[in-house]
Nucleic acid binder design. Structure first.
Lengths: 147, 147
DNA sequence: TTATTTTGTTATCATTTGATAATTAAGAGG
DNA sequence: CCTCTTAATTATCAAATGATAACAAAATAA
């Protein structure tokens, strides 16, 4: 297979995405949550239900710290923890009702800020963008839970 | 304009990109650099030359802290600082030779890890992906330096 | 049964990062 | 000249995060 390298660089793309996302999410982040706590909420929102170990693995933070931060999130009534039935060591983690509401509101704001950036684009442009998002999502930024 | 919302959600895309990128850059990050310091290097690599104020603005960190961390980066011989000629208050910041080399090596590794994910794709797929990256870059994740 | 592994908790300490005030130096404008 | 603003530095303290050890409880294997 002739794998000549891309004319376009992933790194450029990633840095750009990262910068814009940072800028947009900046004034959307709720008060009273530390960055790490927000990261956890984000992860749980996208991968619910999950376990402490999985959280710890995927967010690259030691289990004791994950446990500590999750405890705080429970105290803030944003997360729920529940022992598994088949394996009672495992703690299954979900967002609470409050947590769901919070994250949905935040996601909605982010979504609308991005759509604002596209307000001068034609319907055709929007469709192209939509297709590009889908394509990259399925072909590149898929997550293989096998590793 | 009929701005019906996208079938595909930006937030899903962003979270996915963020997770994959995190995973891929994790074992690429150099020893002896704190996360913030790496973030600074990344920014400088992409926006060189820049100033302390700009760094502070874009990375959402207070100027004194930016100054402190940059000083450490200078001590590690990864950044250079130079007073402006027209306005001698401004400090223009670039990567040093070492810094350039370090970041290029890291970017290269990230790049190749992404290409690894695509090793089973056809040439046609790769072209489509390349086009999608370009499209999103120019239409969505462009940075307007005007704000 | 006993030993071992997995999952998570609690406690503790070091490091990193955030936040703020005080200060210096240079430019802008009166 | 003097005042005001901007860019950056230094110092300091609080808060968040990282890292590690010791422990407990449930599953698994011997």
């Amino acid at each position: 297979m002739d794998k000549k390298h891309f004319p376009y660089k992933f790194v450029d793309f990633l840095i750009s995405v990262h910068q814009i996302t940072d800028k947009i999410t900046k004034d959307v982040k709720p008060e009273g949550l530390t960055p790490v706590q927000f990261k956890i909420l984000e992860y749980v929102a996208a991968n619910s239900p999950t376990t402490l170990s999985q959280l710890s693995d995927c967010l690259h933070m030691p289990l004791p710290n994950t446990s500590r931060e999750l405890k705080k999130l429970e105290e803030k009534k944003l997360c729920k923890k529940e022992s598994g039935v088949e394996d009672r060591r495992k703690q299954y983690i979900c967002l609470s009702e409050n947590g769901e509401a919070l994250m949905q509101e935040i996601f909605k704001k982010v979504e609308s800020k991005f759509l604002d950036r596209l307000k001068d684009d034609s319907q055709k442009d929007l469709e192209e963008i939509d297709n590009a998002l889908k394509l990259l999502y399925t072909k590149v930024f898929y997550s293989n839970h096998t590793t």
